[in-house]
Design a protein around this nucleic acid. Structure first.
Lengths: 327, 327
DNA sequence: ATGAAAGCGCTAACAT
DNA sequence: ATGTTAGCGCTTTCAT
């Protein structure tokens, strides 16, 4: 690979002139300028970004840490963040922690060592403490934990779940099972809280057993099946996209008429859900806005670290389609 | 951010000793070693990977270029590649070209400028020429084009499509529509070829009109609907995961009994396809093997660039489920 | 308007 | 067994 020296030699100028014509640092006379340009072309010179970053002391690069690139919710977020970053002249280094906290930690360190200018993180758990002492601008996205010292972009989970539950209630459902992955995630706990609030507002009892923890594995459908058999709900509220899948499998396993005998409300919208018939009614999260707002906050913090951390909770919407019938 | 100098000063040693205890380069006596380690801890020192890479002249980093991170086929590939890379001590920089050749080119240059040690690419089109002159080890994955000078890992598309078609034929189907995105992709053309070969082997006519180009957008269902109406097939072969979605929508739009009146065979398996009932029978590509083999070839080429390029075509399997009925 | 040279933080060759 | 130093490729200050 040719270096700036090779270009300078071939063009018969100093390396400073090469640098300046390429970066527009200072005026370069047309003759030298074109000599440089043609040398660049003929050598196929590409500036060494590593050397450049070392010297400039920033990389124009952001880290983005997600739990699972394979989940359409996160890959949607990735797309949104990348697009927004690109517009601002930043590249993003994506790391997938596979929901593994140790791997997450290692990846974060790797990102930091790569000298990313900032980091957007969707942590695997709610233990975000180490992110606060990273010495790097960090914004938490989606799983925003309880950190008061970091910028955070999330969604009003309680509100969204309450709205969803209220819709189910309005359709006449009284026995509603809430399918959750794990209560370890604050997001999930908040959704439970929203569900509970909707029930209370309607003066209906809240049954803790109706909140069914199905685990984080895609194939753990047994818990859902058992819960449906014992509690005989008329509607299921799946707190996560994966849980919609589990709900569907359980419904089929039990040969229930869908949505006549049992309705389903999902959380997180995703393209492939249209394979399901009837079309899935879901609470939809504003992926695009979440991504672009996270980027804004991060860029603001990179530019100036001397302002108090912000927390933004974006609203969700309910997309009414076909999977919820009147009870 | 503290540097190696700060650590050396605090530990009362030379920077060489810091470097050596951290990298295990040469023997460091226990007392100095522990002095360094505690200085590292108390400063929260993280080595500057940019400086390290500049000096070492490699980055232990691989680039991976995919057309669309949002497509489960590619995100599956990403997972496989990342896992394999991690095992070998490499990090991967993921870039999503969004099926845009110009963006792809820019991203590739950005990757090169970041000094990745090698690149795995799933190009947007078949124009891979610029990749051959990157001056960087490159392996082509999935969309392997016709480059003879690069290592390539693909799948035997023709064979796979032929097997799929033969299965449809064996189930008694004679009017089989092949749904494709665009004939611009060599992969797709090969799948058409496999379909044609299966027909010929069965002494059945090949109707070019039965190969329906639906475009690359997810919502272009009209072409499929029209084709089904005019050709009255008993089976659909969707050449791509997105096309399964389109096929399903078309089937529903026409209110055909599925799979009794019309069968569906997919290509590319993906988790969310289980939302579909009956479960989708598909040709499945060996994602894990594709990813890990691509990585192996790339690492081999990084280690030693003086061997002829290889092309490996991996076999696909047919996962028989429920969406194909007997005709 | 351009060149020379310092230095970003690190590793490795050279010294002792 | 450890310290000193050159230099990776670039940007930028200083000099002319």
């Amino acid at each position: 690979m040719p270096t700036i020296k090779d270009v300078a030699k071939l063009a018969g100028v100093s390396i400073a002139t090469v640098s300046n014509t390429l970066n527009g640092g200072r005026y370069v006379s047309p003759p030298l300028r074109s000599a440089v340009l043609s040398a660049v072309r003929s050598l196929g010179y590409v500036p060494n970004g590593v050397a450049r970053s070392l010297r400039r002391r920033h990389t124009q690069t952001l880290g983005f840490l997600v739990p699972d690139i394979t989940n359409p919710f996160f890959s949607g977020l990735v797309k949104a963040v990348e697009r927004a970053a690109r517009k601002q002249g930043y590249q993003v280094l994506l790391s997938s922690s596979e929901e593994n906290p140790e791997l997450e930690f290692d990846l974060t360190l790797a990102l930091a060592s790569r000298q990313v200018d900032g980091l957007i993180a969707v942590p695997t758990g709610d233990s975000t403490e180490y992110l606060e002492h990273l010495g790097l601008p960090v914004v938490l996205l989606d799983r925003i934990g309880r950190s008061e010292s970091l910028d955070r972009i999330g969604v009003n989970n309680a509100q969204a779940a309450q709205t969803g539950t209220e819709y189910l209630l309005a359709q006449g459902h009284r026995r509603i099972l809430l399918l959750v992955s794990t209560l370890e995630l604050a997001n999930i706990r908040e959704r439970v809280e929203g569900y509970r609030r909707a029930l209370e507002a309607a003066h209906l009892p809240y049954h803790p057993e109706w909140v069914v923890a199905c685990g984080r594995e895609a194939n753990s459908v047994e818990a859902a099946i058992t819960a449906i058999q014992t509690h005989r709900p008329t509607a299921l509220f799946a707190a996560t996209n994966r849980l919609s899948l589990i709900a569907v499998r359980a419904i089929r396993h039990l040969r229930l008429a869908f949505p006549e005998e049992i309705s389903l409300l999902g959380f997180d919208d995703f393209e492939w859900s249209t394979l399901l018939e009837p079309y899935l009614t879901t609470v939809v999260q504003p992926l695009e806005a979440m991504g672009s707002t996270a980027l804004e906050l991060l860029l603001a913090r990179i530019k100036d670290n001397d302002h108090p951390p912000q927390t933004l909770l974006l609203p969700c919407e309910l997309a009414v389609r076909q999977s919820v019938a009147r009870a």
